[in-house]
């Protein structure tokens, strides 16, 4: 992780540094900065001018779209999760939307309760945001472990089937067990074009549709929670500022408009990831053992990404805490 220390003027958690960029990344940052300025400008003037509210909502939405286009941990977690676990696109979109709304809710709850009710200081708010952040990072690690275990087991099973099939392919016929009602193992040459009819007696690679059924709302909920638990600095600043100007509801509306924009971008990324995986599988021959293994490998790789990502974030945030405490 590039950012080991907490930023001196951090608002909530640390934002990722931008470092060296060019091309489309630069363009996105340009859009982000522009909408950020327009948005804060509209917020500043909306106290005097009621018609600024709609403008504010539109700008917040646009800002959310571009802000989410950059790699942040929320998008990375949702997208990796989708690649690792998800086949149903609609569900992925719901997950993206819920994560974005949760992110807005967390920011509103954090500022509303801490600043609005308990009137805490900036450091207390940063500390609370930091706790949330660490909890979210632990959640990512946990999600990574669960996904890796599930997907690793599925990969191992797929490999076992194929290896077994290959191993027995050149073996004497006595190893091939004919259909006897109990034992259904049979020699197979492992050729991808080998036909498996419904009445085929020998061993089947598990039907991907059945394996796809291992969707669990638990892991989806953890994904939503970890992706949405960390409020972004922009939202916190908008809310605190709106609160100081006695226009908290305006800030809340702006933040939720931002959430909607974020959901659209995260949803698109998740969609792209799922399509990329589908295309990869199609090219490797749908339903073939090879496609099965490649599919499983992609899933395991994505699960590993989630895990490593969580560990990296956790390590970085603890390193940062040590630096500020010392």
């Amino acid at each position: 992780m590039a950012q080991v220390f907490h930023h001196p003027f951090a608002v909530g958690g640390d934002e990722a540094p931008i470092g060296r960029v060019s091309g489309i990344t630069a363009w996105i940052i340009g859009q982000e900065s522009m909408f950020s300025l327009l948005l804060t400008g509209a917020l500043r003037s909306s106290k005097e001018n009621n018609s600024a509210y709609f403008l504010l909502a539109g700008l917040s939405f646009a800002y959310g779209v571009f802000h989410a286009a950059g790699p942040g941990h929320g998008k990375a977690v949702v997208t990796s999760y989708m690649v690792s676990n998800e086949r149903a696109l609609r569900r992925g979109l719901v997950i993206s939307l819920l994560a974005a709304i949760l992110q807005g809710l967390v920011a509103v709850a954090l500022v509303g309760a801490l600043a609005g009710i308990f009137r805490v200081t900036a450091q207390r708010m940063n500390a609370a945001a930091s706790d949330l952040e660490i909890t979210a990072y632990c959640g990512i690690v946990l999600l990574g472990i669960v996904l890796l275990a599930t997907k690793g087991a599925a990969l191992a099973a797929a490999l076992r089937q194929t290896w077994a099939a290959r191993f027995f392919a050149g073996a004497p016929p006595r190893l091939a067990l004919p259909q006897d009602g109990q034992n259904v193992f049979f020699a197979d040459d492992g050729a991808p074009n080998h036909l498996h009819g419904p009445d085929c007696a020998h061993c089947h690679i598990p039907d991907p549709k059945q394996l796809g059924g291992d969707f669990s709302w638990k892991s989806a909920a953890v994904t939503i929670a970890t992706a949405g638990a960390r409020p972004c600095s922009g939202a916190i600043l908008i809310l605190v500022f709106a609160l100081a100007r006695d226009m908290f509801p305006v800030g809340v509306a702006a933040v939720f408009a931002m959430s909607l924009g974020t959901a659209i971008t995260t949803g698109s990324l998740a969609t792209m990831a799922v399509f990329a995986k589908k295309i990869a599988l199609r090219f490797s021959g749908r339903g073939s053992p090879r496609a099965e293994i490649i599919g499983r490998l992609i899933e395991v790789a994505a699960a590993l990404c989630v895990l490593l990502f969580g560990v990296a974030l956790l390590v970085a945030s603890f390193a940062g805490m040590d630096a500020t405490n010392s």
Binding site: E15, E32, P71, T79
Partner: peptide, 17 residues
Amino acid sequence: LALFLAGLSAPAFAHPH
């Protein structure tokens, strides 16, 4: 795809807040 994911997880973005 793996590269795409790696890119997603790289910290790279902020704009002035």
